[in-house]
Nucleic acid binder design. Sequence first.
DNA 1: ATCCTGTGCT
DNA 2: AGCACAGGAT
Length: 240
Amino acid sequence: MPNDYNVSRTLRRWYDTHRRALPWRDTRDPYRIWISEVILQQTRVAQGMDYYHRFLERFPDVRALADASEQDVLRLWQGLGYYSRARNLHAAARDVRDRFAGRFPTDYAAVRSLSGIGDYTAAAIVSFATGAPYAVVDGNVLRVIGRLFAIDTPTDTSAGRHLYNDLARSLLPPDQAGTHNQAIMEFGALQCVPRNPDCSVCPLVARCAAHAAGTPERFPVKQHRTKTVDRYFHYFYVTT
DNA sequence: ATCCTGTGCT
DNA sequence: AGCACAGGAT
C-alpha cells in the first residue's frame, strides 16, 4: 500500500505542467468554486465557461444570488438543462443567507448540508477553498484509481464505493489536499482518459496495475444493471 | 439500492 | 431507438 504520497507527488508534478488555465482555478472563494462545480457537473468546460462568467457577473456573491428571484436564476440557467440544479442553487443561496449570515461556509458538514451538494461537491469546495483534507471522488478519480490498482469490485456497489473512498483518502497528502484533488481530476480528464489512453507518455505507467495487465480500458468496472433481468424459478410441491 | 435529468454517442 | 454518463436525491 503506497501511503508515502509518491503517487500524489507524481500527479502534482504532472499537473504543474499540463493543467489548463481555467477561471475557477486559483480562487479560494467557496462561492465561485461552488458555482463552477455545479455548472461543470452537467456541462463540458468549453460550454460551461460562458455560463460561469455570465452567472458571476449577474450574481457576484451568494447574497446577490439569494436576493434574486427564482425566475432570474432560471433565466440565466436557460440552455443548461437540469433546471432542478438551478433551483437547488437558488435555495442553497437563500439557506446560506439565512443560516450562515450570507457567508458561504467552508466547514464540510455545513457545506454538505446545502441543497444540491453531495459528497463530491462538498469535498471539492472545502478542499479547494481551504485545503482541508477531504478526498474528491468523481468519475475521473474512479478511473484513475480503478486503473492504478486494477480494481475488480464494481464502482456502483457499497463495497466498491467504500474501497474507492478508502483508496482516494490513502493517496491524499493532508497538507496538499486541494492541489492533489485538482491534479488527480485533471489527470483523469486529460491523460487517463476513458478510451485509448496514451500510456506511453503516462508518468504513472510503471505503477499502473491495469497497464501491467494490458487492459487499461477494462477499468473502472461497473455493474449498473437497472435493466430488468428475467429470472426463472423452479419449484415443486412435496406432499405426504 | 434505485431513480432522476438532458445530451450525445452508437 | 436505446443506452451511458454524472452526480445528487430519495
